[in-house]
Design a protein around this nucleic acid. Structure first.
Lengths: 296, 296
DNA sequence: AAATTGTTTTTTATCGATTAAAAGTCATCT
DNA sequence: AGATGACTTTTAATCGATAAAAAACAATTT
């Protein structure tokens, strides 16, 4: 049956929302809450009913008021708020990276379903979506094979990445001064400088900044296939960072400096400088990734 | 439950196989048949049992013999030999192109399941795989939207296609004379010439030749992401050709001539000629596709 | 001993059912 | 005119079951 993760997440979010209101303030309209919480009115009403039971909301009909949600207010645990499909991804990546990283490993739907405590259809659905990452392959009527987090995977990934990024960077550099992108780029540059200043303590925050930087570049000339490829990059790097903590602080510091050079190049509008900075950064990122592959 | 399309296809193939043997000849081993028919031995045994019932095979155990399968021999109809998942693709593309081509159309899993006579999970699985084609988008908890076979779709598709193909064509031109590719290329060129000679009657055969030509080029420097993109191109063109018959003969003749120029350029190993021929061909292919999009 | 056939176990493809969430209806209130 | 209440209807997410196909194992035969 369908899980009620949507309701639980909305419930938790609603508590946060309420606690930002004054005691006794009237409850916003159901439609307003529906938009704020990103769920349908049906779900909003279910949340309101629960909050009334917990005393966070009093009254009824048009006369409903908010009351301070105590800090210790019962919330649903984090993992009950994430839909099965999303959990499968997490658990699968962990399984892939931790236990069975050998190229050629057979992936067994039934086995994974049991391990993860979900029905086989959930696993199938995930594997079908995950196929586009180029890490698994289907054998009709006979399951899936893990092709391995190999050197050739990293090389092929970066070949495409470089093609796409060079193309986007060139498009960005050619944008008129009036374009919004330059302001966004400058704001992002400031964030880089701020992070660099506190690199000793905040170095984990780079992963997110990195993804936002490259995605911003790609918006200079939108293309759905490129955007979708960035999703792959983002996921691969997300799990790669989580897995390989070696030298993380230093690696990230180097990458920030490369980004800063890249920023300069972009602001200069000089195409060959842009290409140089882009290539330099990507090849260093590739080398990092290559170091954690399994050969071949 | 699982359908027995694998068995039915194998059964039909087995009849063809048997009819190429002499009357009374011993039946090839189950393992041999398993390889020939591309199914497991389990299925082979099921096929043998059926063929025995039909009198095409006599005897038992190690003493089995083949008998001439009469021309009128019962075969399973074509559409019982294709698995549900493959049928869904066909029906979906038809539905998309024939009935509801409007951008923004909501795609309803339940509705499609009823229309196509399959369970909702089959539709879900298909849509999840089809997502990578860039034509549909998921709205969590609220179905899918058809983004439309629009001008921007065609432009974005061809931007990537050109990047990939130029890169592969350059790699091909740089291959040593000793490479297998040159022979394969020459064989393909001959097929082009043969087709051109009979263009009036055989013009439909171009679609397949086109796909093989571009795929051959891409094998010069294999990359899983590029290969997977070619799957998209192939499917889009397959259905596009099926749908838009306008000027087909003439369009294909033009394309063959463009291919021939492209062949010449490749054989000459002259990079700028290759680029020229490649760009010319792709831009003409793009224009053809653009003519059947729905604008935007 | 290697190949072949016979038997049993495991796994995939597909269905149908169930619950949560979204979407819709419509009368009532303010 | 917009909000709410009180439904009803439709649709998506998820489960578990079942038959087909594959894979593994065992028993023969040459």
């Amino acid at each position: 049956m369908k899980t009620d993760t949507v309701f639980k997440r909305a419930f938790n979010d609603a508590i946060d929302l309420m606690s930002r209101l004054e005691d006794g303030e009237p409850l916003p309209s159901e439609n307003t809450l529906s938009i704020r919480l990103g769920v349908s009115r049906t779900t909003v009403r279910k949340v309101i009913a629960s909050l009334k039971a917990s005393g966070v909301i009093s009254g009824a009909g048009r006369e409903r008021n908010v009351h301070p949600a105590s800090e210790a207010m019962h919330r649903f645990p984090q993992d009950e708020t994430v839909p099965m499909a999303a959990q499968v991804e997490e658990r699968f990546m962990e399984w892939l990276l931790r236990d069975n990283a050998r190229p050629g490993t057979a992936i067994n739907e039934l086995d994974l379903a049991r391990k993860f405590g979900v029905a086989t259809t959930g696993i199938r659905e995930f594997l079908n979506r995950f196929q586009r990452f180029g890490l698994i392959e289907k054998r009709p009527n006979a399951g899936w094979v893990f092709k391995g987090f190999t050197t050739s995977f990293a090389l092929e990934l970066f070949e495409i990445r470089e093609m796409f990024e060079l193309r986007s960077a060139r498009a960005l550099a050619a944008l008129p001064d009036s374009s919004q992108h330059w302001r966004q780029l400058e704001a992002l540059r400031q964030e880089h400088l701020a992070l660099l200043a506190e690199i000793e303590t905040r170095y984990h925050d780079f992963s997110d900044l990195d993804s936002r930087f490259h995605r911003l570049i790609s918006t200079a000339a939108p293309n759905r296939f490129i955007d979708s490829f960035y999703d792959i990059i983002t996921v691969i790097f997300h799990y790669h960072y989580q897995w390989n903590k070696h030298d993380e602080r230093q690696r990230n510091e180097v990458a920030i400096r490369e980004h800063l050079t890249y920023f300069e190049a972009l602001f200069s509008r000089n195409i060959s400088m842009v290409e140089l900075a882009c290539r330099a950064h990507l090849s260093s990122a590739r080398d990092t990734l290559l170091r954690s592959t399994s050969g071949q």
